[in-house]
Write a protein that binds this DNA or RNA. Structure first.
Lengths: 243, 243
DNA sequence: CGACTGCTTGAGCCAGTTCAACCACTGTGG
DNA sequence: CCACAGTGGTTGAACTGGCTCAAGCAGTCG
């Protein structure tokens, strides 16, 4: 895969028109490919001096565990996303990262990243944009768990995922492939798996979305967006620092 | 007030030993003092080209509103905290900011901030540290709302606030002044005000904390920390980029 | 074939909500 | 100086969204 159609390039390209130089700088970041099997944590809480990764293919999730054994998934990462950017800047990781599927990721050393940023500052801005978008997603997630009921929350989640996947060429307004189990959905949405199941059924019976067999099919995006109170502006901030 | 005992200096100083140069650079950021009365929003969603502020005194809260009228408070900011750092980097604000009390804050223009960072890079690192701490707090907040019950969540919240206030010289292990109403607590914790009231009573009757008349008194911090499953490590990351 | 993982459905229960009332304070205008 | 309105806190009673427990089913893998 060349930089041109890599998920990361697609994502950043939605924000900055990338020059050839910038493209090849991105390419160079993809030098150290690594593979991770699903299930075994890539990073866990308290681990020190972790590298960052750029996800090339597959899905991962970041989560925290409570002493009682409960798990809260903070976010899923999909191709084109950075993982553990914060764990590089700070010595220790404050959450766990687990591959949901087989994962292909490029390791990025702190030095290389900083080096790339100083040579191609527009890339730095673009990556900062991506990081801020991630932060905005966490905030929106918080709002959803705090103040939306299970149905709205689930609908919102599925719409957000769709929107993110579309940006990296992995989905359309009609639907997308989704390797998550209902258990993972539950841990992300702050619900029980049983209840997620019922909510998904309702959404299906209402003719809004179908979540089945690893595929999300969106039947009526307009009604779904109304139900979820979905305003995608938090996903595509304008880029101000860029002239 | 000189930089030496300003809340921001105290906070950053916990992370980096600040030189005289760095101190006076901080001082210069405090040039444009402004006052804000409680109640009227300082920033609201969608607003463009906002400045950042450093909170000198008073409390503010950042929140989002849903179409149904529900409100979710994402975070409170206390003296020494930055407000709207993200809104500077990005053209539009994605949340509202409202003063909880009378507020004194220093406006910081994007240029001045970037300028300060390039002259005193250790300050840049320190501010980055603070920003990352804020992000970690939002994540912890998300986890709490998703997976802690009302009592644990409330206890955790009060402990976190105490820990933050202590860092800027506004509280101790015994307690602190707190201008929040039970309604605000409710909007932050994702609960109803009525239930917050009952939970606070329970915590009081258990001899753990008292939240009354604008004061939080911590009676038994050890039991409180156990109840809340409070691990303060997310509040004080080490600083790796600093030699 | 059995074991395991993920999905589905029912039944009963409980944490937290909503509605409604009442109290204590504080500030404000006549 | 009192009346009155507004804000914040407190408590009870009834209701409900989502949970837990329990069972059964389908597909997949060794």
């Amino acid at each position: 895969m060349t930089a041109l159609n890599s998920p990361l390039a697609l994502k950043l390209g939605a924000f900055v028109a990338l020059s050839n130089d910038e493209m090849s700088a991105l390419d160079r970041l993809h030098a150290r490919r690594k593979l991770f099997p699903p299930g075994r944590d890539m990073v866990h809480q308290g681990q020190v001096n972790q590298s960052a990764y750029i996800l090339a293919s597959g899905w991962v999730c970041s989560y925290k565990l409570l002493s009682g054994g409960a798990r809260q998934i903070v976010d899923f990462q999909i191709p084109g996303d950075f993982l553990g950017l914060r764990s590089v800047l700070f010595r220790t990781a404050d959450h766990n990262i687990e591959p949901v599927t087989k994962v292909e990721a490029s390791e990025v050393l702190a030095i290389d990243l900083l080096d790339t940023f100083s040579r191609t500052p527009r890339l730095a801005t673009a990556v900062l944009w991506a990081a801020s978008r991630d932060e905005a997603m966490v905030v929106e997630h918080l709002v959803g768990i705090g103040r939306r009921d299970a149905k709205e929350r689930t609908a919102h989640f599925l719409l957000e995922l769709g929107s993110r996947l579309k940006l990296v060429g992995l989905g359309s307004a009609q639907g997308y492939a989704c390797p998550l189990s209902q258990y993972m959905l539950a841990d992300a949405l702050g619900l029980s798996a049983v209840h997620v199941n019922r909510v998904l059924r309702e959404l299906r019976e209402d003719g809004l979305v179908t979540f089945q067999n690893g595929h999300v099919v969106i039947h009526d995006i307009d009604r779904l967006m109304v139900l979820a109170d979905f305003d995608k502006s938090y996903l595509d901030h304008d880029g101000p620092l860029l002239k």
